[in-house]
Design a protein around this nucleic acid. Structure first.
Lengths: 235, 235
DNA sequence: TAAATGAATTATGAATTCATAATTCATGTC
DNA sequence: GACATGAATTATGAATTCATAATTCATTTA
C-alpha cells in the first residue's frame, strides 16, 4: 500500500532528490515490522527527528501514511503508538490473508503462463531440499518466493497491493516463529499439493489448498506462542 | 489505579478541536469518490488550501493518506493526480472485494448473533419492498446496510478495514451505475438466498453466494459501461 | 501523607518561511 | 514560423516558527 520509487521523470538515475516523507515511511515501517519500535510503544516525534536528522514536517507526513496502513495509531494531541499485533490480532489477520491467497490461487490457475507454473514447481523442488538440509532460513526464503510467484501469476494489481499490506502486519510472526519439525514436514507436503494443483490448473483446489495452508500456519504459530507463554509464566 | 483526568472526561464528546489533516482527508476522499475531483485530474495544492481555508501543511498530510489508500498518486516534485478507476480497474478490484465478502459470509455464519441474523432478514424483506416500489435510492441504501450488517457480524477488524478501503475504490461504480430491471430482480433473489443461507448458518454456501453476487454485480456494471461506450461512439 | 491546584515544561497541530525543482513565457536564432 | 535557450514565475519539499493542548512538577491544603 505504498508508492515506491515510481516514475519520476529521470527513471533509473540516482539523481533525484529523494522524498523524505517516503523514505521515512519506509524506514518506520521497517522498524515496526522488525520490532525496533515495539508494539504499544509511544512514538516520540522529537527523538525520531534527531535520529533521522530531519524536521518534523516530513516525519509527520510519514506517520500519517503508517497510520493509514494500520501500523500506527494516531491519537489527537497525544501522539502515536505502535499498533500491537497480539495473538488475537493474528487470529484476525490470518483469515483475511488466507482469503486473498485463495483468490490468488483461483486466478493463478486461470492466468499463469506455463513458465510461471514451471517456476513454482522448481521452487517447490528447491523447498524440499531445504527441508532435507534442515536449512530454515532458506526454507522461509523459498516459501516466500513461491507465494509471491503465485500472487504474481494471479495478475491482479489490487490483490498484490492489499496482500502485501496485510502480509506486512504478520510478517514477523510468519517468518520468525520457529516451526516444529512435524509442522515443517506437513507444510512441505501441502506445498507439493499446491504445486500439483497449479500444474493441473485446478483453481478451486489450488485456492482451497492455499487457504488451508495459511490457516494451518496460523495454528502452528498460535501453538508456539502458547508454549512460549507457558514457559514464561512457569519460569 | 489512576484517576480520571480532564481529557478522559470529555472523551466521546465533540468538544475536541478537530484535526485538520483528518478532516481534509475525509473531505478529499468524499470529493474523489463523488467525482468532484475527476480521475486523472491534477490536484492543485494552492487551490485546495484556499478552498478549505487551511495551510498547505495539513493538506499535504491528508494527501499522503489518500495516496496510501490508493486514491491519489503522488509524483515527486510534480504534484498529485487522482487515481483513475477505469473499467479494467473494476475487473481487477471486484474479485478481491468478492473474496472478502466470501470470507465475511463464512465468518458471519459462525459468529453472527441471532439478533444480527434477524436484522439481515428484516433488511432483506425491506429490500423486496423497494423493488416493488421501484425505489432505487432506497434499494442501494438497504443493499449497503445488508452488506455492512454481514461484515459487522463477521466480527473481524482486519476484514472490515480492508473491505472498506477497497469498496471505496469502486463505490461510485457500484452505486451509481443504473442497473437494468432484470438484473435488479435477479439481485433481489440472490439476496433472498443470502438471507436464507445466513439463517441456516451455512457458511460455505453464504460465502459462495456473496462472492457470486459481487461478481454478478461486476458483470452488470460492465454491460452498462459497454452500452454507454457504444451510445457515445455511435452518437 | 495524599490529594488538589496551578505554573513551568514539553509535545503536538498548523501556519509561515525558505530552498529547490518544474513550468511558463519571452527572446533570439536558424 | 519552428525550435532552442534562458529568465521569470509557479509549485513542491522541507525547515522553522507560532499557537495550543497535554504533561510534569512544585506547592499548597486538608
Amino acid at each position: 500500500m505504498q508508492q515506491m520509487t515510481k516514475s519520476n521523470g529521470v527513471e533509473g538515475l540516482g539523481l533525484v532528490r529523494p522524498v523524505l516523507a517516503v523514505q521515512l515511511a519506509n524506514a518506520l515501517r521497517e522498524m515496526i515490522l522488525e520490532g525496533d519500535l515495539p508494539a504499544g510503544e509511544k512514538i516520540k516525534e522529537k527523538e525520531l527527528t534527531t535520529r533521522f536528522g530531519v524536521s518534523r514536517t516530513p516525519l509527520r507526513e510519514a506517520m500519517k501514511v503508517l497510520a493509514a496502513e494500520g501500523h500506527l495509531e494516531l491519537i489527537p494531541n497525544r501522539g502515536a503508538i505502535v499498533t500491537k499485533h497480539s495473538s488475537e490480532d493474528l487470529a484476525d489477520v490470518f483469515p483475511v490473508l488466507a482469503a486473498l491467497e485463495r483468490l490468488a490461487g483461483e486466478l493463478a490457475a486461470e492466468r499463469a503462463t506455463d513458465e510461471q507454473i514451471a517456476h513454482v514447481i522448481s521452487l517447490t523442488v528447491a523447498l524440499e531440499e531445504t527441508v532435507e538440509a534442515d536449512n530454515r532460513p532458506e526454507y522461509f526464503k523459498i516459501n516466500q518466493a513461491i507465494h509471491n510467484a503465485i500472487l504474481t501469476a494471479a495478475g491482479s494489481e489490487t490483490l498484490m497491493r492489499n496482500h502485501a499490506a496485510i502480509a506486512g502486519r504478520v510478517h514477523r510472526a510468519r517468518y520468525q516463529a520457529n516451526l516444529a519439525r512435524t509442522r515443517w514436514e506437513t507444510a512441505l507436503k501441502e506445498h507439493e499439493m499446491i504445486a500439483l494443483a497449479l500444474k493441473d490448473r485446478d483453481g478451486a483446489r489450488l485456492g482451497a489448498l492455499l487457504n488451508d495452508h495459511m490457516m494451518a500456519k496460523l495454528s502452528s504459530i498460535q501453538i508456539v506462542l502458547e508454549e512460549e507463554k507457558h514457559s514464561h509464566t512457569t519460569k
